[in-house]
């Protein structure tokens, strides 16, 4: 799981173009939106696309997506349980 968490952090940095940020600067359990990384709705779209492109996961239910994107840990767990690629 730690390996996947690190991979997800790196993918978030790339997808959201968090230039200058390193994976260790992202708190695994901090909220991704508002607090924590301070992401917004545009970033949510980027993360949904990331999961589709990199793992073949299509998020159709907004409630499911919201829960999955609470933190890096919930996102990694969601990917682990639903990945197709």
């Amino acid at each position: 799981m730690d390996e996947l968490i690190l991979k997800v952090k790196n993918e978030i940095i790339t997808a959201l173009k968090l230039e200058g940020m390193t994976p260790d600067e992202i708190d695994t359990d901090a909220p991704l939106f508002n607090e924590g990384l301070g992401l917004d709705s545009i970033d949510a779209l980027e993360l949904i696309v990331l999961m589709d492109k990199n793992y073949g996961i299509v998020v159709e239910d907004p409630k499911v997506g919201k829960q999955a994107l609470e933190s890096v840990r919930t996102m990694a767990e969601f990917i682990k349980n639903n990945r197709k690629s």
Partner: peptide, 9 residues
Amino acid sequence: YPKFYKMDS
């Protein structure tokens, strides 16, 4: 200010 990292140069 995490939003700083999202900004362009």
